[in-house]
Design a protein around this nucleic acid. Structure first.
Length: 591
RNA sequence: GGUCCGGUAGUUCAGCUGGUUAGAACGCCUGCCUGUCACGCAGGAGGUCGCGAGUUCGAAUCUCGUCCGGAUCGCCA
């Protein structure tokens, strides 16, 4: 049984002086001065110092046995501290509680790591004892931010007349996209549910149903390899709206983002956000999620060098590739060794064949392949690159668009190396006009860039048959400081067009009908034009809180092998369970 | 699946050109201490150097294999 607390450990101030109070909490630290014992009592709300002196011998003896992380309750009186013993660092630092009664609810073993902020303990240990990790304030703060943001998001959509609708977690597996997590059906031998990669089809069906505006904060699942910013189960803010175009969706969500950043980080965000077509993002920044907090824009110097003596430049341009550059201001003094190391990194991280550099120093242009280039060519290259005296120009050559992506990676590397990123800035950006599909060399067919329900730009529909790769889509991504926060599109709401897109994607009528027949049928009964978007809530919280890893903003995350080190999942199951599910394990599985 | 980094006390790390009994800090335990808040002081316990094989008179140290963790590429509509 527990004593009813009168206050939390974060709320007593000088105004409570003289009050008899009851506190419950964990022992954070104990400072035993012999006749006097101080304890920092901790709960989610804060820390309050409690004091035991020797006026009550029995109580003092009990206090001597208290240890870190014991869970206790105390009754006592709020005392104003003497001037010289005030702790200005703590909100409760002007008072302490003089204990008159103590109960130990539960003792604690010494934890494997200290429960305090800034510990260097490796993640493996922290994940195994995640319940202890979450006792730490810096993790609790992140979970509280997440809780507050989720609350604000719900209020925001409810205020705008969105309906919060839950969609199935057990659904059918669909082709396209990420690998599904599968769930066997006991009552349907040999059949499987899939966990949703997103509630995409359901939210579109809700539009057909006339729900008009839908949102959901919903778990999604993708069975792909993990990264610091990628977990197998993650949470989306999922949205769909009827009778809208891109601008309507942008407007609502610019307001949402501005509100979140203002109310939770006290950062003013200007709206509307900048918009940039995919092609511009690729050509200027070498990325579909450009970080706009620094310059280093990419220049196309192909025309300057296509007739030069340097064979690589010549042949690259002749084969339809590009020669591109970035100019690093004031770094013309960079030494050969440093440039070689940078070249190595570029090669190993981007697959670029090599890197060429040019320096402008003392009024003279020098280039690593200068003996093949005349002065005029180098002058043109420098001019197109926007270089000035003292600058360094880095050049890559290769097939497009690969060379742009390589340059995009180099651009980020250089920005980090030379500390060019203005980290105090918050640069939201809509990237628009994505290609609808791209050719997959592996599968020898077209793949949707976004998903197969994305509407093509009306003016490009005629290109679907002849040049699918040229068709632009009505998809958009929201990017923040080089991170993809979310993406969406205006959807196809016409069953014939949908069927056509499936066909171009290599899904024949029969398969389309089998896998997506329900959606195309639905469109035959009156489908409103509609579109939507989904944001990664985990990623938003990660960026808002400055966390380095998604794992820090998820209460119970998985490690890189998609395992939970705490409960040791996934685990084996009994033969009997498998039997019920009509499943037998292949003998390639190592037991 | 590839590449890179790492694995030594409860924790974080040092030791790694092979050579006495594997060290430090924090934590933990004991004692002293009435104004601490990173309390202080004195003392103490704590190790299968991830695991296996090899080289060697001798391996934490060198080699190979393997397991584990992380970063990253592929992958992620």
């Amino acid at each position: 049984m527990s004593w009813n607390r009168t206050h939390t450990c974060g709320e007593l101030t000088i105004n409570n002086q003289g009050e008899e109070v009851v506190l419950n909490g964990w022992i954070s630290t104990r400072r035993d001065l012999g006749g006097l014992i101080f304890i920092d009592l901790r709960d989610r709300y804060g820390i309050t110092q409690i004091v035991f002196d020797e006026t009550n011998k029995e109580l003092h003896e009990m206090a001597e046995d208290l240890r870190s992380e014991y869970v206790i309750g105390v009754k006592g009186k709020v005392i104003e501290r003497d001037e010289e013993t005030i702790n200005p660092e703590m909100p409760t630092g002007k008072i302490e509680v003089e204990v008159t009664d103590l109960v130990v609810y539960s003792k604690a073993e010494t934890p494997p790591f200290e429960i305090k902020d800034g510990i260097p303990t490796n993640e493996e240990t922290r994940l195994k004892y995640r319940y202890l990790d979450i006792r730490r304030k810096e993790i609790q703060d992140k979970l509280m931010l997440r809780s507050d943001v989720a609350h604000a998001v719900r209020n925001f959509y409810h205020d705008k007349k969105f309906a919060e609708v839950e969609t199935p977690v057990l659904m059918r597996s669909t082709p396209e996209g990420a690998r599904d997590y599968l769930v066997p059906s006991r009552v349907n031998p040999g059949r499987f549910f899939a966990l949703p990669q997103s509630p995409q089809t359901y939210k579109q069906l809700l539009m057909v149903s006339g729900m008009d505006r839908y949102f959901q904060i919903v778990k999604c699942f993708r069975d792909e390899d993990l990264r610091a910013d990628r977990q197998p189960e993650f949470t989306q803010i999922d949205v769909e709206m009827s009778f809208v175009d891109e601008e309507n969706i942008f407007e609502v969500h610019e307001e949402l983002m501005a509100k979140l950043w203002k109310e939770h980080l006290d950062i003013e965000i200007e709206t509307p956000f900048q918009r940039m077509p995919y092609e511009e993002a690729l050509h200027k920044y070498g990325s579909d999620k450009p970080d706009l907090r620094f310059g280093l824009e990419i220049n196309d110097i192909s025309d300057d060098v296509k007739d030069s003596e340097f064979k690589i430049f010549q042949s690259t341009v002749a084969k339809g590739g590009r020669v591109v550059s970035i100019t690093v201001p004031g770094e013309g003094t960079m030494g050969r060794g440093a440039l070689d190391r940078l070249t190595d990194r570029v090669q190993s991280q981007t697959g670029a064949a090599g890197m060429i550099f040019m320096k402008w120093q003392g009024g003279e242009l020098t280039c690593s392949v200068g003996k093949f280039l005349d002065d005029e060519t180098m002058a043109n290259m420098a001019e197109t690159s926007g270089a000035k005296e003292g600058d360094l120009v880095l050049i890559l050559a290769g097939p497009s668009p690969a060379v742009y992506k390589q340059m995009g990676t180099l651009r980020l590397m250089v920005a980090k190396d030379f500390d060019l990123i203005q980290t105090d800035q918050t640069k939201f950006l809509w990237v628009t006009d994505f290609p609808l599909m791209e050719w997959s060399k592996e599968d020898l067919r077209y793949h949707s860039l976004h998903h197969p329900f994305t509407a093509p730009k009306p003016e490009d529909i005629d290109l679907l048959d002849e040049e699918p790769a040229q068709v632009k889509s009505r998809a958009y991504d929201l990017v923040l400081n080089g991170n993809e926060l979310g993406g969406g599109s205006i959807r196809i709401h016409d069953s014939e067009l949908q069927q056509k897109v499936f066909n171009v994607l290599g899904i024949d009528d029969e398969e389309a009908n089998e896998k997506f027949g329900f959606l195309m049928d639905a469109f035959k009964y009156g489908a409103p034009p509609h579109g939507g978007i989904a944001f990664g809530l985990d990623r938003i919280i990660m960026l808002m809180s400055g966390a380095q890893s998604l794992r820090d903003v998820i209460a119970f995350p998985k490690n890189q092998r998609a395992q939970s080190l705490m409960d040791n999942s996934p685990g084996e199951v009994d033969e009997e369970q498998l039997l019920e599910l009509h499943i037998s394990l292949r003998n390639t599985v190592n037991k």
